[in-house]
Design a protein around this nucleic acid. Structure first.
Lengths: 132, 132
DNA sequence: ATGGGTGCTTACATTTTTGTGGGTACTTAC
DNA sequence: GTAAGTACCCACAAAAATGTAAGCACCCAT
């Protein structure tokens, strides 16, 4: 259907797996991308890159997130092996979330992005001068 | 309301503008972040980083995007000064989209991210082994 | 004994996003 | 003359994301 579906210059059948291609609609990389770049996914990754956090600490750190979305986002990222969940079996529940080695690599890119946005906000939406 | 709203250690009133803080719900950086990390925003930025594209070329390059969403995404990014729109006044309409210098900086981060995902897809959703 | 904190889940309602199909105005190709 | 390409916009509808409120099970401070 799409031209790029068949464009992978595969060398051997033994390649453990093929590289993803985000431009192809059906590529599984699209799902990973959407988890990481979802409204809360980015912020969770960045917060966890700063430090390991408990559920409620994350909730306080990330302004505006609801419990529901935090739980859902964490589960998506855990499913992609980016976030590690460590539950202590204590009587007031205690759960710590941290990045996996894989997650740390990914989070570095996300933190670079958010950092850039924070630094360059003035240049971006500085003033909506032209409405011509 | 949020603790981080008042946390800006502002030095002088003359600072042209303050730095953003993506963790604060009300910070304008959130809007920029959402434009760039929207479902199609990432892909548009990455595609434009490869090369200047016309509207319909972008549509073909980005698998699965509709005209409506492409137009909308481009307008958002243009509003954030990341994308430049150049319309030639020819009789079959001809419009070229490219990144602004600002957009190029941002796109570099996004391309790094998508590139990393493409490269590491096998490590990520390689096989959903543990469902314990 | 009442309220708050812990880490969630589920049902339900609302909001946001996205897709579909049509229209525009004009040109080139068949 | 009929279809297709260009770069969109618009109304409508469906789908997806998100919020709200409640519940659970148990503890501690007031």
């Amino acid at each position: 259907m799409d031209a790029q579906d068949a464009a992978a210059p595969r060398t051997s059948l033994l390649d453990s797996y093929e590289r993803g291609n985000v431009m192809a609609a059906a590529c599984p990389s699209r799902a990973v991308l959407s988890h990481m770049t979802s409204r809360w996914g980015v912020l969770v990754m960045v917060a966890l890159q700063e430090d390991t956090h408990r559920f409620s600490a994350l909730r306080r750190r990330i302004g505006g997130i609801s419990e529901r979305m935090l739980a859902q986002t964490l589960q998506n990222l855990e499913g992609d092996r980016l976030v590690h969940r460590h539950a202590l079996d204590t009587v007031p529940p205690h759960v710590e979330y941290s990045l996996t080695p894989l997650g740390r690599e990914a989070a570095a890119h996300l933190a670079a992005l958010t950092g850039w946005i924070e630094d360059n906000l003035p240049r971006i939406s500085g003033s909506e001068s032209d409405l011509s």
